[in-house]
Simulated assay, not measured.
Amino acid sequence: MTEHLGYWMRLVSNHVSFAFARRLEGMDVTVAEWVMLRELYATGPLAPNRLAGRMGMTRGAISKLADRLVAKALVTRSDDPKDGRAHSLALSEAGALLVPELARLADENDAAAFGCLTPDERAQIDRILKKVAAAQGLKGSPLT
């Protein structure tokens, strides 16, 4: 088993992901919520179906995430004036202020996990993983 590359990738991935989830607990945000906040921070307001496509999630999953973030006052819902059935999601002021702090935690998590690597080694791993992801047609955000 330990001769498989997938074993080592999963071992490291789990460690990095769980460490980040623990860091986020103190901010009352889950990893999935962080991904949505980061996406809205980068794009501005989006319709839920567009956000679902960008994140590689179902519209139902996006709706549940949005409900939680609206309840936490980090995201707002706005009705589309042209289509009463449609709406968009956007960061609230509190959400926009929180994203840079969460990004700092993500950077700290990466530094803690990968600080043992040289910049060249990090660049190689980054390039290789992106190549594998592209070859497999992987898109969206890794949430599980």
Rank of each mutant, 00 (worst) to 15 (best):
M1Q: 11
M1H: 13
M1I: 06
T2R: 15
T2A: 15
H4S: 13
L5Q: 11
L5P: 00
L5Y: 12
Y7L: 03
R10D: 08
R10H: 06
L11S: 05
V12Q: 08
S13G: 14
N14H: 05
H15A: 13
V16A: 11
V16G: 01
V16L: 05
V16M: 04
S17T: 11
S17A: 11
F18N: 08
F18Q: 11
F18C: 04
R22M: 07
R22W: 02
R22H: 09
R23Q: 10
L24A: 04
E25L: 11
G26M: 03
D28F: 08
D28W: 07
D28S: 10
D28K: 08
D28V: 08
T30L: 05
V31R: 14
V31L: 15
V31C: 10
V31A: 15
A32S: 14
E33A: 09
W34V: 09
M36I: 05
R38Q: 13
R38W: 11
R38P: 02
Y41W: 14
A42D: 12
A42E: 14
A42P: 00
G44H: 06
G44Y: 04
P45A: 13
A47N: 03
P48L: 04
P48A: 05
N49R: 13
R50A: 15
R50N: 12
L51G: 06
A52Q: 05
G53L: 10
G53F: 06
R54Q: 10
M57F: 10
M57P: 00
G60L: 11
I62A: 12
S63L: 01
S63N: 08
K64S: 08
K64C: 00
L65I: 01
R68I: 00
V70T: 04
A71R: 09
V75E: 12
V75Q: 10
T76Y: 07
R77P: 00
D79P: 08
P81N: 01
K82N: 06
D83E: 06
G84I: 00
G84E: 13
R85K: 15
R85V: 02
R85P: 00
R85G: 03
A86C: 01
H87E: 02
H87I: 00
H87S: 07
H87F: 14
S88W: 12
S88N: 03
E93D: 12
A94C: 02
A94P: 00
G95S: 06
L97Y: 03
V99W: 03
P100L: 02
E101C: 09
L102G: 04
R104H: 08
R104D: 10
R104E: 12
L105P: 00
L105H: 11
L105M: 06
A106R: 15
E108Q: 15
E108T: 01
D110S: 10
D110E: 14
A111V: 09
A111R: 14
F114T: 06
G115A: 07
C116T: 13
C116H: 15
P119H: 02
D120V: 15
D120T: 15
D120H: 15
A123I: 01
Q124K: 13
Q124H: 12
I125H: 10
D126S: 15
I128H: 12
L129Y: 12
K130M: 08
K131Y: 07
K131P: 00
V132H: 09
V132Y: 13
V132C: 03
V132D: 02
V132F: 13
A133N: 07
A134R: 13
A134M: 01
G137S: 03
K139Y: 04
G140C: 06
G140M: 07
S141P: 02
P142R: 05
L143N: 04
L143E: 09
T144N: 13
T144E: 14
